[in-house]
C-alpha cells in the first residue's frame, strides 16, 4: 500500500536560499529546474529556478515528506498559492541584501496569508551579518500591519543546523497550536 504524502514549501525571492535549504535536508539530490537568468538587472545569478525545486524525506512509516521550492519571481505567484494548498507549512526565506527585502516579504505574506495566519509559517532572514538593515524589528512591524504573528529568525541556510532550526520553530508552532485545540476540546 502506498504511503501517505506530506508537503513542505520553501518560498522566497531569487537567491534567498530555497534550493540550498532543500538540499540541506533532502535524502535525494534535489531536482532543480534552472534556466539562464534573463533578469540580471535585479539579480546577478547565472541561472534561476523557473519552476520548482524538489526534494524528499522518507519517514519511518514509509510515508514521504515532499519538499517544494517555489520559483522566486513574482510572475509565478499563482504557483505559490497552488503549492501552499495542503502543505504542512511554509518556510519563507528572505535575502536581506536585496534592495527592498521588506517588499519581498510583503508579496509573500499576501500569497501565503492563510498559512501564515494559521501558525504554519516561519520566516528566515539571510545575510543579516553583512546586511544588518532592515533589522528583525522592521519585519515584525510588517507582520503587525497584517495582524499576524509569525516567528522571524536570522539564518544562514548554507548551515544545515540553521535549516533545522527553521523547521524546529515551524513544527513547535504547529504543536503548540494542536495542544491548544486539545485543551479546548477537553474543557
Amino acid at each position: 500500500m502506498a504511503g501517505r504524502e506530506f508537503k513542505l514549501v520553501f518560498a522566497g525571492s531569487m537567491g534567498a536560499g530555497k534550493t540550498t535549504a532543500i538540499a540541506a535536508i533532502s535524502e535525494i539530490p534535489p531536482i532543480r529546474t534552472d534556466v539562464h537568468n534573463t533578469d540580471v538587472r535585479s539579480h546577478s545569478k547565472a541561472t534561476t529556478t523557473t519552476a520548482m525545486d524538489y526534494g524528499e524525506v522518507t519517514l519511518d512509516s514509509g510515508d514521504k515528506l515532499r519538499l517544494y521550492g517555489t520559483p522566486g519571481q513574482t510572475r509565478f505567484d499563482f504557483m505559490w498559492r497552488i503549492l501552499a494548498k495542503g502543505a504542512i507549512g511554509v518556510v519563507l526565506l528572505v535575502d536581506n541584501s536585496r534592495p527592498d527585502p521588506l517588499s519581498d516579504v510583503h508579496a509573500y505574506l499576501d500569497a501565503f496569508r492563510e498559512t501564515v495566519s494559521s501558525s504554519r509559517a516561519v520566516i528566515g532572514i539571510g545575510r543579516t551579518e553583512t546586511h544588518p538593515e532592515p533589522g528583525l524589528d522592521a519585519y515584525y512591524a510588517l507582520a503587525d500591519e497584517y495582524g499576524i504573528s509569525v516567528p522571524i529568525v536570522s539564518v544562514d541556510v548554507r548551515r544545515r543546523e540553521d535549516v533545522l532550526l527553521l523547521l524546529n520553530v515551524l513544527f513547535s508552532q504547529i504543536e503548540a497550536s494542536l495542544e491548544t485545540e486539545e485543551q479546548g476540546a477537553m474543557a
Binding site: F6, L59, S61, I88, S119, I174, E175, L178, T180
Partner: peptide, 20 residues
C-alpha cells in the same frame, strides 16, 4: 489554525518528521 490546517496534521506525523 483550527480551521485552516490540513486535517491530517497531528502530533504523530510531526513526531515522525522530527525523527526523520
Amino acid at each position: 489554525a483550527a480551521t485552516a490546517r490540513p486535517a491530517y496534521i497531528g502530533m504523530g506525523i510531526l513526531r515522525s518528521i522530527r525523527t526523520a
